[in-house]
Measured scan of single mutants.
Amino acid sequence: CHSECLGNCSQPDDPTKCVACRNFYLDGRCVETCPPPYYHFQDWRCVNFSFCQDLHHKCKNSRRQGCHQYVIHNNKCIPECPSGYTMNSSNLLCTPCLGPCPKVCHLLEGEKTIDSVTSAQELRGCTVINGSLIINIRGGNNLAAELEANLGLIEEISGYLKIRRSYALVSLSFFRKLRLIRGETLEIGNYSFYALDNQNLRQLWDWSKHNLTITQGKLFFHYNPKLCLSEIHKMEEVSGTKGRQERNDIALKTNGDQASCENELLKFSYIRTSFDKILLRWEPYWPPDFRDLLGFMLFYKEAPYQNVTEFDGQDACGSNSWTVVDIDPPLRSNDPKSQNHPGWLMRGLKPWTQYAIFVKTLVTFSDERRTYGAKSDIIYVQTDATNPSVPLDPISVSNSSSQIILKWKPPSDPNGNITHYLVFWERQAEDSELFELDYCLKGLKLPSRTWSPPFESEDSQKHNQSEYEDSAGECCSCPKTDSQILKELEESSFRKTFEDYLHNVVFVPRKT
């Protein structure tokens, strides 16, 4: 048989008469490798580009789960590009990614509803959504962080984005990388972005840091009482949809009607710091009717980097990364020049730590249904340095008659930039024990000054392991946590139920 035959053949030295091919099969003959313009397919066939392209389009058009959109890589027609490569849609070739590779997620039936953290986790790592997304989240724990972890990498949506009755959302900033909504599939009414009845939605994105392009379709905003109209108009300008909307697409009466839409800028007039305090004062603000001013709200939190936005980490279910302080308005003076500047002394802060701070007014709604208010920009203030805590785990070892090696770990709280350490030492008198000992005694162990690591005695271990207080009263049991108490109650309830079950099964009433 021919060298490319495997198993047997019907005619000697003829690659077209093989029972099976050793390498690849091409047009009725066995070959060692697939010549151009053919590609290896499933490690035994040679196919042309049209064959591989037909497989790709067949799966793409069917949208069946589990099928493969075949691509070409290293002269092979394979189910998908290997790690580190992405497909070129024009020629199906796998090309190296520039940075992290995109991950295209194809949605069944063309859309997916995100109504819980669990459903959001199914899209973790996706960068391109081939379909439409509907966000409908009523509640949950730590929602802002969970949504950002699972949806934060999405850069492109081919269909539309719909935010509907998501009472738990305060902001859409968890879509931190969303840059493009194509609108290839539109919501009824030709809408590519749809926001309806979101009672706590206050911000779409921080438009000073976020760009969003909507290729096709219109915007729809109705019944978002805490979303200011200025935020919607800003989205029109940034996304390129200005002029597409009709009169009733953006409701003037049901958007922002319960919001404090600040239209003035508060400026800080005085800032002073110490290692654990920050004193702030800002310019006074009074609405047209000074009785509408209820006070100020001061927001602050630790910020290692200057990239904080107002609604980071917030949701309507209680999660809030900001510390909020309510401040009463100052006494009002008739003389504008003698107006008191409101302020606040922030206490209990960490030394040498940068804080993000902003302040906003708290006002009631005027009778004319106009909203007044003022808010400052987010500023960054760093507390002063102070003395560091003591170095940890000092170790001293003498390696000769004239040297001592000293080692330690950095302090747990540096409280500033540590530039150097101060080492103090003092000579001590020799131990009298060394002169009084009889060095001729056998088995004498000389006193040693070398360091030995501390260890816990058996008594201390027994005390720590004991669940009861000892007789001397030195140790006591740790208080039980809520989960331990709940577990004990469940076990007790189970024992009672099981005992009742045994009584009912074992003891049967005697027939009379």
Rank of each mutant, 00 (worst) to 15 (best):
Q382N: 07
N224W: 00
F221Y: 15
G125F: 03
N320C: 11
N141I: 11
Y372P: 07
L133T: 03
F299W: 15
N136T: 12
V104G: 06
K407F: 04
F358G: 04
F220S: 03
S166I: 04
V238C: 09
S401K: 13
L196S: 10
A303Y: 02
W207Y: 12
R165M: 09
I404A: 04
I250L: 08
R291G: 01
Y372N: 15
I134T: 03
K162M: 15
E187M: 07
L349E: 00
N141F: 12
D315T: 13
V128I: 06
T127A: 07
K350H: 12
L293A: 03
K242Y: 02
F193S: 00
L229F: 03
R176W: 15
Y160R: 11
N334F: 07
L219A: 07
L201F: 11
F358A: 12
K407R: 12
K409D: 03
A168L: 02
D326V: 02
L252G: 10
V325C: 02
T113W: 06
K409S: 11
R182H: 15
V359P: 04
T215S: 10
S398N: 02
L362G: 02
E264C: 14
F175T: 02
S333T: 11
M346A: 14
N200D: 03
M346C: 10
I214H: 06
S208M: 10
L219H: 03
G217V: 00
T127M: 11
D377L: 03
R272F: 13
W207K: 13
Y355F: 05
A144Q: 12
G131A: 08
A374F: 07
R244F: 15
L331T: 07
F193D: 01
A251Y: 10
N307T: 07
I163L: 04
S269R: 12
G295Q: 12
D257P: 03
T215Y: 08
Y300M: 13
R281K: 10
G131Q: 01
S239Y: 08
L294F: 09
T118L: 03
Q258N: 02
I379K: 15
Q354K: 03
H222T: 15
L201S: 01
D115R: 08
S402A: 05
G256I: 03
T323D: 04
G131D: 01
T254C: 08
Q314R: 10
G373I: 04
L172K: 00
K209L: 09
P388R: 00
T353N: 08
Y380M: 06
N142T: 10
A149D: 11
P394E: 04
L123K: 01
A374H: 05
R369N: 13
S208A: 15
L186Q: 04
T364N: 08
R281N: 14
L133K: 00
D206F: 12
S158I: 12
N150G: 08
S396K: 08
N211K: 11
F268N: 00
Q245E: 13
C126P: 01
Q382D: 06
E262T: 07
L227K: 00
V128Q: 02
S208R: 13
Y305K: 02
P388M: 00
N340M: 04
L406G: 02
N200R: 07
R165H: 04
G343T: 05
H106A: 05
Q216L: 13
V128Y: 14
N340T: 14
A316E: 15
T383E: 00
G140L: 03
D206N: 06
S400W: 06
A149E: 15
Y194A: 13
I157H: 01
E156T: 09
I157G: 00
F193P: 01
T215K: 10
D312T: 10
T309Q: 13
A149Y: 12
D115L: 09
T215N: 15
N263D: 03
L293R: 03
L349I: 05
M235K: 00
I395S: 06
N141D: 07
D312Y: 11
C228R: 01
A259K: 07
G313Y: 13
W207S: 08
L219T: 06
F174Q: 02
K177M: 08
A251K: 10
L219I: 08
Y194H: 13
C261Q: 02
I278P: 00
K301R: 11
P394K: 04
H341F: 10
D326H: 03
A120Y: 09
D249V: 12
Y380P: 00
D312F: 09
E148T: 05
L229A: 14
K409I: 01
K277F: 08
G140Q: 07
G343I: 04
I405F: 15
K234C: 12
A145L: 10
Y305F: 14
A168K: 01
A374Y: 05
E368S: 11
H233L: 04
W322P: 01
K350G: 14
L252P: 13
G189E: 12
T254N: 09
N307Y: 04
N307P: 06
T241H: 11
K360A: 12
F193Y: 05
A251Q: 15
A356N: 01
V128R: 12
L107T: 10
I271R: 02
K267S: 13
G373W: 04
K301V: 06
I395R: 05
A168Y: 11
Y270V: 10
Q314V: 13
G318K: 07
N340E: 14
Q306E: 03
L201R: 00
L252T: 07
E262W: 04
G131V: 00
N130E: 12
G373H: 03
T113I: 05
V238Q: 14
F290Q: 04
W207G: 09
S400L: 12
N340S: 06
L169K: 01
